[in-house]
């Protein structure tokens, strides 16, 4: 702390990097292999769920140990890539255990070249936050939330590619 100016410069630099990386993700240009994984509790996830703008958000709840989740993941990846320029964005909220992020989750992301951002939701108080995501959710995964500024749809089920696309069309009739 001998040199406050230097401290401010470093801080500014770090903040700058943070914003730049966020932008890079927005542009869907970020390399999968360098993805840093955000670990959040429900309060940390909430801002994403409350986004209401011109983008359609797809938030998929999954885990590497969940077989039906892994089966549908490639479809969410395809959708994220295909609709990147059409204001449709996929987020993959992982319910993997925190201690397995390095050993299991990161290798899985790299192996499967997952392009949507992966966020780990690490919050044991699921009895409280499951209902806040959707009251119809029993807690089983996979589960997926679709929303834009007009509509919000929640499903506790495994999707096919066509079903995901149908919901995007339903939320965005202009794409037909």
């Amino acid at each position: 702390m001998e040199n406050p100016i230097r401290y401010i410069l470093i801080t500014t630099f770090i903040i700058g990097i943070l914003f730049t990386s966020a932008d890079a993700q927005d542009n869907n240009q970020k390399k999968v292999t360098t993805q840093e994984i955000r670990v959040v509790d429900f309060a940390g996830l909430q801002p994403l769920l409350e986004k209401r703008n011109d983008t359609t958000y797809i938030v998929n709840f999954w885990a590497t140990w969940c077989a039906p989740c892994i089966k549908e993941l490639p479809y969410f990846k395809q959708i994220h890539e295909k609709y990147a320029d059409k204001k449709v964005k996929v987020f993959l909220v992982s319910l993997d255990f925190e201690r397995q992020i390095e050993t299991r989750l990161k290798p899985f992301i790299e192996k499967n070249k997952l392009t949507p951002e992966v966020i780990v939701l690490n919050d044991p108080k699921s009895n409280i936050w499951i209902d806040k995501i959707d009251p119809s959710w029993s807690g089983a995964i996979p589960a997926t939330l679709f929303f834009n500024s007009n509509n919000r749809l929640f499903f506790e089920k495994e999707f096919t590619y066509n079903e995901i696309e149908a919901i995007i069309m339903q939320l965005n009739p202009q794409y037909n």
Partner: peptide, 10 residues
Amino acid sequence: FTKAIGCTIK
């Protein structure tokens, strides 16, 4: 009545 995350029944 409470809820928790779990695996789907296969």
